[in-house]
Design a protein around this nucleic acid. Structure first.
Length: 762
DNA sequence: CCGGTGTGGATTTTT
DNA sequence: TCCACACCGG
């Protein structure tokens, strides 16, 4: 029981046993941060602290779960289960539910995910008759979100000069009004978005000192993981809760703060020392994860940042291999190199597939690697992207569940009032919504008594479908009172007809949707059987409370052997023997200070640092000199960050290294004239015909199926170049190119398959 | 109302 | 490329 302290190094040991007073633990990458946190909690428990007096906040649900499991191993699960441990969002959602009399929200409030928020904003913007091209829902959502994270209410937003001028400059002067209506609408729907969970907690603690007092007393020890990624709202919650006991331990690494885009303030970790002058500082500097080369290389990059807490991260592992850098000609070749390398390394060094990860900046980059891996029959799994809970079929089921629990949830109602199709079209939905907003009722209240609405009654056509929908929901509500979450979900998928709908659909997508539906019912079943009596009963209400805050990462991964593909962001906290950091081009890892402010650049550098420090043994960085993106060819340069790594740690492989690579770079295919330019140095290389096309509309009217119909000799019309004659057509795998002689252009043009063409004469 | 088709726009990153 | 949306005809 006590021997957990033996395996710690001196710095870790200090950070574990000094449990009194504020503590700042700076934990370099791979320095055993989770160990320290878990042992610190275990140490508290072993020294007489009750588990319910400890509040530990993590960044993801997964981290919380894992940590709880590890603590349970030390102190036993009967103790560990009473710990308050979870993400900010889940813990404070729970508190907001139990303090519902004080919040103005019912305890069964719905949590809107970003899609719900966006939809709500969209309809508000439409209602206000504003142009949704100017008031882009995503942008507005971003503004509202950052305001909330800075604890700025709609009212103060509207009168704040800074925001007024900013919104005027961005031609969105009505943002404040939208914010206000959005807030009202959420309240009416009994819904909170992600930011509201934190904002309303702050409001609760501000306006109800008795409540604050209660939680201050309850939580004698606070621990916060990933402190560098907390926002102002979270910071303030911690500060208030810690005000009584001052036993607040924050753990983090300023070099890994990569969430500024969603409001994270790296300053929080810098300012901890001034916030708590009596704090103790612990630096975990030994990296147990990576080879010396990788650690040194990572250090050499992050050293270029100005804002940081000085530390000296070192490794005592073997020196290790140099970092390979590959500059491929094309994205396809980059994929090929990576897949080949995985096969080679696996054979030569007995690695498993699960020892490999491919990390990229954006989800869209995964496709090329998927293709190359599939070609070589390498098993892989993509993390992130469209998460399970964001899939249409899943959201539809959950929307029904949400209505059952909270009928005022308009967003859920709008989602399924006509799904499956029952003849309630967009205009009818708009009519109901307008009625609801007029009378200050929820849409469900209108639907419930739709016979009273003259407008609906007179048209007649809606009567039957509305009655049917109402009956369906009412049935669910009644049944739900007696049965558990799993049973009601079964009834919902069956009675709505969704189960049959998806079962009948035998297209690949239909099958996968059916499987997803099965997976969801399994998940609910699991929720029911795993349910701990401590947390109430396994009813739908309780299931829903978790589900909005879940993400794909929280789904347990099977034991299988596969290569992992994910964004750098989602790789944080993970480690792999071999890491491929791909697509490292300046388009995605910007290098121009003129475009990006200094602190944005520093954040990008930290992101790069995070990626590099995921690797234990081998790191391979790659980029492509020509990339096919959004239907167009671009010629990106390697990111500056590669050059910021000290050259002594690098091993460069420029150009094609794979002799077997049979595909020529994409932009040269099938065109003799261009082929000769291949040898030109990068700076002088011109892709003139293609770049001309780039300037035209990027519409993809010219579909592949149509394109294959194109023949040499056809007369076509191009939006920009006018009428012309096809003189050569080249179809090769998925790349299709036509050379066209345009009447009025005086130059033959090379058109890619996405060029906009109308066939005039065959 | 609904489904098909054409069109235009968009891309970080996640609780 | 994919997705959302507008438009049209049944």
């Amino acid at each position: 029981m006590k021997d957990y302290l033996n395996g710690l190094n001196p710095a870790q040991h200090e950070a574990v046993v000094n449990t009194k007073g504020p503590a700042l633990v700076i934990a370099g990458a791979g320095s055993g941060k989770t160990r320290v946190l878990t042992f610190r909690i275990a140490h508290l428990l072993n020294n007489g602290t009750r588990p319910s007096e400890i509040l530990a906040l993590t960044f993801t649900n997964k981290a919380a779960k894992e940590m709880k499991a590890r603590i349970a191993e030390i102190v036993g699960s009967d103790v560990a289960k009473y710990l308050w441990m979870g993400t900010f969002h889940s813990v404070f959602a729970r508190i907001l539910r139990s303090e519902s009399e004080k919040t103005g929200f019912p305890s069964n409030f719905t949590i809107y995910d970003s899609a719900d928020s966006k939809n709500l904003l969209k309809s508000i913007i439409k209602e206000l008759q504003l142009d949704s091209a100017v008031y882009k829902p995503n942008q507005i959502l971003g503004k509202i979100s950052s305001a909330k994270n800075d604890l700025i209410s709609a009212e103060s937003y509207k009168t704040n000069n800074h925001f007024i001028t900013r919104d005027r400059n961005s031609k969105q002067p009505e943002t404040g009004r939208i914010y206000q209506i959005y807030t009202q609408r959420c309240k009416k729907n009994s819904a909170m978005d992600f930011d509201d969970l934190l904002l309303n907690t702050n409001i609760l603690f501000r306006d109800h000192l008795d409540v604050l007092d209660k939680y201050q007393k309850r939580y004698k020890y606070l621990l916060v993981d990933e402190y560098q990624d907390t926002n102002y709202s979270q910071y303030l919650i911690i500060k208030k809760l810690a005000a009584l006991h001052h036993n607040v331990c924050v753990v983090g690494d300023d070099a890994q703060s990569i969430y500024a885009f969603r409001g994270a303030k790296i300053e929080n970790i810098f300012n901890f020392r001034t916030d708590y002058p009596e704090h103790k500082l612990f630096k975990l500097e030994q990296n147990y994860r990576s080879t010396q080369n990788i650690v040194n290389a990572a250090n050499s990059v992050i050293a270029k940042n100005n804002k940081q807490i000085q530390k000296n991260v070192f490794s005592e592992k073997h020196e290790g291999e140099l970092i390979d850098v590959y500059e491929a000609y094309t994205d396809a070749e980059e994929g090929y190199i990576v897949a080949n390398k995985i096969t080679d390394m696996r054979m030569a060094q007995q690695f498993h597939y699960k020892d490999f990860a491919i990390l990229y900046r954006t989800n869209a980059q995964s496709r090329v690697f998927e293709e190359s891996l599939r070609k070589k029959n390498i098993p892989y799994r993509i993390f992130g992207g469209l998460s399970f809970y964001q899939r249409k079929e899943i959201k539809d089921i959950l929307a029904y569940c949400r209505i059952v629990v909270n009928p005022n949830d308009n967003e859920a109602l709008k989602r399924v009032i006509n799904y499956p199709k029952r003849g309630i079209g967009a205009s009818s939905i708009a009519k109901i919504e307008a009625h609801a907003n007029h009378t200050g009722q929820s849409m469900w209240q209108i639907v419930k008594d739709f016979e009273k609405i003259v407008d609906i009654k007179s048209s007649g056509r809606l009567l039957k479908p509305l009655a049917q929908f109402r009956q369906l929901v009412l049935d669910f509500v009644i049944k739900n009172q007696e049965i558990n979450a799993s049973e009601i979900v079964q009834i919902i998928v069956k009675d709505t007809g969704m189960l049959k709908d998806l079962y009948v659909d035998k297209s690949p997508e239909g099958i996968s949707r059916y499987e997803n539906l099965q997976e969801l019912t399994n998940a609910v079943q699991e929720f029911v059987s795993d349910f701990d009596a401590l947390e109430g009963s396994p009813i739908l209400e309780n299931y829903l409370q978790n589900v909005a805050l879940l993400s794909d990462q929280d789904k347990k991964s099977e034991e299988n052997d596969y290569v992992s593909l994910m964004t750098i962001h989602s790789s944080k906290g993970l480690e792999f023997k071999n890491v491929f950091l791909v697509g490292v081009e300046e388009e995605l890892f910007p290098s121009q200070m003129s475009v990006h402010s200094a602190h944005e650049l520093e954040e990008e550098r930290r992101l790069f640092y995070v990626a590099v420090t995921r690797a234990e043994e081998n790191l391979i960085i790659s980029c492509a000199k020509s990339r096919f993106r959004w239907g167009q060819v671009s010629s990106p340069k390697p990111s500056r960050f590669i050059n910021e790594i000290d050259a002594q740690y690098l091993d460069w492989h420029v150009g094609t290294t794979s002799k077997n690579f049979d595909k020529k770079p994409r932009e040269y295919r099938g065109n003799k004239e261009l082929k000769s330019k291949q040898k030109l140095p990068n700076s002088q290389r011109k892709l003139s015909p293609i770049s001309n096309v780039q300037n035209t509309s990027s519409s993809s009217a010219f579909k592949t199926s149509t394109l294959t119909n194109l023949k040499t000799g056809d007369i076509v019309e191009h939006q920009k170049f006018g009428e012309g004659k096809v003189i050569e057509i080249n179809i090769d795998g998925n790349s299709v190119v036509a050379i066209v002689d345009f009447k009025n252009v005086g130059q033959k043009q090379l058109l890619l398959k996405f060029a906009k063409l109308k066939i005039i004469k065959k």
